[in-house]
């Protein structure tokens, strides 16, 4: 199943979803953050999709568009196809529902995104910083991140 069939099946399964195809990424669909959790449940349980393998979740920080884009990548071993889901979140206080109750693999990836981008995942069982030590302030992978002893290479 390639991306367009996914969009047709998803819209048909969840009427108020209106998922759109993503411009930059050939096999990604864009969904608004509210109904991401429902979509993930459908993707895992739907016999046509069977996306049981959670690969990773990561984020892209777009300061000019003032949004953080979350990218979920899922793969299905039985059917052999992949789907990436992208949602946009406001930059100030990005908040989204966790998917670690659907796939346990998401637990650590979400903790990493929380640690490096500052996206809080509600109802996450153990949301702590994973890479940095707990007392660290600031989110390193954001574009506007500075640290007192960060030295930029002369351009």
């Amino acid at each position: 199943m390639n991306r367009d069939e996914f969009i047709k099946a998803a819209n048909q399964a969840m009427p108020d979803l209106h998922a759109k195809a993503d411009t930059a990424n050939p096999d990604a669909i864009v969904v608004n953050s509210a109904d991401l959790h429902g979509l993930c449940l459908w993707m895992r349980d739907d016999p046509a999709a069977q996306l049981t393998y959670f690969e990773f979740v990561t984020a892209q920080d777009w300061p000019d568009r003032d949004e953080i884009v979350l990218v979920y990548s899922l793969y299905s071993h039985p059917l052999g196809h992949r789907l990436m889901v992208k949602t946009a979140l406001p930059r100030r206080d990005p908040q989204i529902e966790t998917v670690s109750d659907i796939w346990e693999g998401a637990n650590w990836s979400e903790r990493e995104v929380y640690d490096l981008f500052g996206v809080t995942f509600s109802r996450h069982p153990d949301l702590r910083r994973i890479m940095m030590f707990d007392g660290w302030e600031g989110y390193p992978l954001r574009k506007d991140y500075t640290h007192p002893n960060l030295i930029h290479r002369p351009e």
């Binding site: 990773f56 920080d61 637990n107 650590w108």
Partner: peptide, 15 residues
């Protein structure tokens, strides 16, 4: 590169 993410196997094995 604007963003480069490595999906590594040991990360999930550790979890």
């Amino acid at each position: 590169p604007y963003r480069c993410k490595f999906r590594t196997p040991s990360f999930s094995h550790c979890s």
